[in-house]
Design a protein around this nucleic acid. Structure first.
Lengths: 179, 179
DNA sequence: ATATTATTGAACAATGTGTACATTAACATA
DNA sequence: TATGTTAATGTACACATTGTTCAATAATAT
């Protein structure tokens, strides 16, 4: 029922997205101006604002786009079945690595807070399902926060290493540390 | 050999610091303008800029001030001796709690990145000294990153809970999770 | 071929940044 | 108390960024 986008709209949106991502590779979000974006995307100022209310709205749109792409779309293409938590974490790392170009830009710098919050929500659900795997004598909410945040730290760590990592090894190391 | 500050300078600096901290309690760093600061501090625009080159410089100055105050100054006033890692972590939490007014403002929101980086450096040294306590079969740099980041997550967690926590319990829970 | 819709560029007000400078007030010292 | 030094003030300024408006133009769908 969703009407297809006008080709012009699609092209403009693409151009803005691409310009923004390219700028994110070299600059922090706060230092990128709307002017920078429309210059690189080569679109008019009014065009930008007819697509996005603010720069924040653009960031939000791009985060949810990429998140959907990685976590809901291609995530089923991981080779082999996924059963336990360790494999699921490797699974996530594998997909982030496959999309490293986008990920490094969004996680590598501090601009990554928003995107990270998407991932955190996802991880929170994931770890909640596996809380029984950790027989630690600590409050559950404390444990959950610990797992989510420390795996996020691992993701950032991998992004800083330009995703030149082995998903399986990282996932195994993570599980070893928290088990 | 350091010449004492002119009383006017001290007063101005204090006023700016206080205004900034108060604003940080309710607003995110990025949304606070120099105008807001000088309005609340009730000092002239040029006065502000004769003290600090930019808003970033002010944040940096305030972070290192508070860090020095907490981690180098009062940290010896903790009741009882500190020996093992768990006690040291409780120690840190205890002091952060004692300075909760400053801490919540600086850690509670995303503005906390800079201040957190000070703490991270400190924690990195601390955990490095205790790496032998963790006999985990994972690379040392991975383990160190994990410990530092997950304890920072715990600090943020405590700040979000307005520091209404028991330092001893939190430190114990943390050690249980990573041991 | 035509009606619709997106894009454009230019102009605009509003807000914020950082600097310059002459004037005034507070300070230290003798 | 008188004097030279230093800090604070306010005003004004150039500049950058944001977000809006609008009429003219181009691409699109039918």
């Amino acid at each position: 029922m969703v009407k297809a986008m006008d080709r012009r709209q699609r092209k403009t949106r693409e151009a803005i997205f691409n310009a923004f991502r390219e700028l994110l590779e070299k600059n922090r979000y706060e230092n990128i101006t709307v002017q920078d974006i429309i210059d690189r995307a080569d679109v008019g100022r009014s065009t930008f604002y007819s697509h996005f209310e603010t720069k924040d709205a653009l960031l939000k749109a791009i985060c949810s786009d990429i998140f959907d792409h990685i976590f809901r779309g291609e995530i089923c293409e991981y080779p082999g079945e996924t059963h336990n938590l360790q494999e699921k974490l490797a699974h996530i790392l594998w997909h982030l690595k496959a999309n490293k170009k986008d990920i490094i830009g969004l996680l590598g710098c501090e601009s990554g807070e928003l995107f990270m919050s998407y991932i955190k929500e996802y991880l929170s659900e994931l770890f909640k399902m596996h809380l029984k795997d950790f027989s630690k004598d600590v409050p559950q909410d404390f444990l959950l926060n610990h797992l989510v945040c420390s795996f996020c730290a691992t993701l950032k760590w991998c992004a800083d290493k330009k995703m030149n990592i082995s998903p399986e090894e990282i996932a195994r190391d993570f599980i070893r540390v928290v088990s």
